[in-house]
Design a protein around this nucleic acid. Structure first.
Lengths: 204, 204, 204, 204
DNA sequence: AATGAATGAGTATTCATTCAT
DNA sequence: AATGAATGAATACTCATTCAT
């Protein structure tokens, strides 16, 4: 007997199912919290059976980790693209671009960012002290210092310092709700980033 | 017959019992984690019956919140004492003292701090964006600005920025394990605090 | 120092305290059910400390039993008074009076009656097959039969039969909410009582 | 390798599992009382794991309700079968059959009946004033009245009256322990039913 | 790949009762 | 008589995970 042509295919490419599960999990995690979300709710939300979850993830912590990676990677992509538009020698611009792009990426996914790093932080203490964003910022600071754009005794320290500062700022609930509030916020973040590297903020 | 002077009194002042329970909980939370600690272990650790726990706290989250408050209050007490030793007009010294005292308070109770704010963060997003430490720092920045010690467009913003920066730094595992590493760390934090307010760090 | 003349006396005659506890328990039992009512709520309701409860009752079942007795005795008193007003030889009138007085007593305390016999019945199966009301009715039937007012092969059987019938009728929620509904109900009960003894109900 | 043909299938049709759980619960409730029976004992009795209980029932009260329904339905089935054997126009016979079949159904499952309606009565007051047995009796009384077999001003009233009367009678502990006692009881119930409808009982 | 019935470990919480004062 | 802090037994329920189909 032929399969009902109207019904959705029972099997899908693995990547697609995985994404659907992640998206369902993300929505539920944001709506009701990680703890309060059950695996079954995730699978129901993704329209599959409970067992299917374990074909793609090993546990709830596993999906959460995947969501974290997806989020951080998206922010990093945004940063790379923005910073890449600066002239090679414009270190000041690059730093400003970094701060703005990072803050923007976070603000655009405020809930998810809070979820991934604050409400349900990774098991290790690494979360906010070692990640690809901090590495990227650290590298930028080191490169700029190498080119004489600024001085930085310890780029790693400054990167952790600034990243967490930015993180704390954008993590404030209700911040940047209006376009003008957001613009002001981005400006203030940029100014503090520049000042931290000893560059005058340009507002005299 | 007189009461046996050796046996502990069955009833104790409420505050005392409460403190004993908190202390037992703190030790267990640090040893084996919040999730892994049962209420019964806490009461056993405090030498009381299980039901007694609920005479003082409504849940595990409730003790955790009490531990958080106790920790933050202790750090604030240390800050107030240290800052208070600066001359009235020495705003630069006060800011430096604030950063050092705060970082010291955190580093001295690294486990508890990690526990209370990272591994088992408060349910709301408020924790790291509104607390008595940030309020205190914000006030200091505003006061200094009022006295012309520095300029600060938005003391609240800078306070959140710096507090989270500091928080991220001291939260790094294994940081400041040696006295010299700690000294260097405190110096770097101080330098960044000063620079954020446009004061030269004095290390050239 | 003299006791504050405004405060209520700390000690009261035992009977009074007991009554206050019973009254508080009755109100709470009716409001939220026996199971859902705690001893502490009862004592709070009576304005005494928890331990005082055990000076008057041995358990929750004990208060409930006391409430049951108080209720049944009140109904019986009403019946005895009403029936006593009939002429000595008016057996028909006595039976009618019994049914009406019993139903009235129940309807006047509908919730308590439900509580005492249905929602939280006594531990034994005796509740609705042996109690002082049934005994009283049984005696009336036997006496009337002895006087030739009616014939009754088994007065005990008929008493249980009629008592439970009446009980089921008045236990219907919302029955007899208006005066006329109540009058109709009492009439119907009376008619069925008379008919059960082979007396014509008088409604032809 | 083929599945071991001796081992029971791990999964069973839902209805079957449900029935097994109900039967295990019924046995335990009768043996040791509802309160004294734990969910775990029920599942052990049914040969399944604890969690399986909650796949079929939401709580102990839920199974109890299911047992009540099963019991009442069984009694109704017996009544319908018995009454159905009477000639169409034999209303007196039908009424007699109803009372006898209902009483028999109750007496045959005295423990369960006591359990379900007396020791652990339903939470609402509806149980003994509205159920499918009362509805059935009410209909019979109305139909007979319609055919002129008897007069009934309020069939619903009489049905509640008689049902509760019968219920109270059969609920007496130790009643009808011998065949002859049972026969006498059924006869007396029948006589009272007939008399309630104004039919002479035939026992003069 | 997908299903979903079955599993069973794990624990927070309540509250009747006691008893030293 | 009265208090109320302390006790501790007792159990329902959840939900991540498995696995036979």
């Amino acid at each position: 007997m032929l399969a009902n042509p109207v019904s959705k295919p029972r099997t899908k490419p693995p990547g697609e199912r995985r994404d659907e599960l992640m998206t369902a999990a993300e929505r539920l995690f944001l709506e009701k919290g990680v703890e309060q979300t059950t695996i079954e709710e995730i699978t129901t939300g993704a329209g599959v059976a409970k067992g299917t979850f374990y074909l793609h993830f090993s546990s709830k912590a596993d999906v959460l980790q995947a969501l974290r990676s997806r989020f951080v990677q998206a922010v990093l992509d945004g940063i790379v693209a923005t910073v890449g538009r600066c002239r090679q020698e414009d270190w000041r611009g690059k730093l400003a671009a970094w701060s703005t792009a990072c803050a923007t990426g976070y603000l655009d996914a405020a809930g998810l960012h809070h979820l991934a790093f604050v409400a349900a932080p990774p098991a290790t203490r690494e979360g906010l002290s070692r990640n690809i964003l901090i590495d990227h910022l650290s590298e930028l600071i080191a490169d700029g210092a190498g080119e004489g754009a600024w001085s930085a005794d310890d780029p790693g320290f400054t990167a952790v310092f600034l990243f967490n500062a930015l993180h704390g700022i954008v993590n404030q609930p209700g911040i940047a709700e209006t376009p003008s509030a957001r613009a002001g916020l981005l400006g203030a973040i940029e100014a503090h980033f520049l000042r931290a590297l000893g560059l005058w903020s340009g507002i005299d």
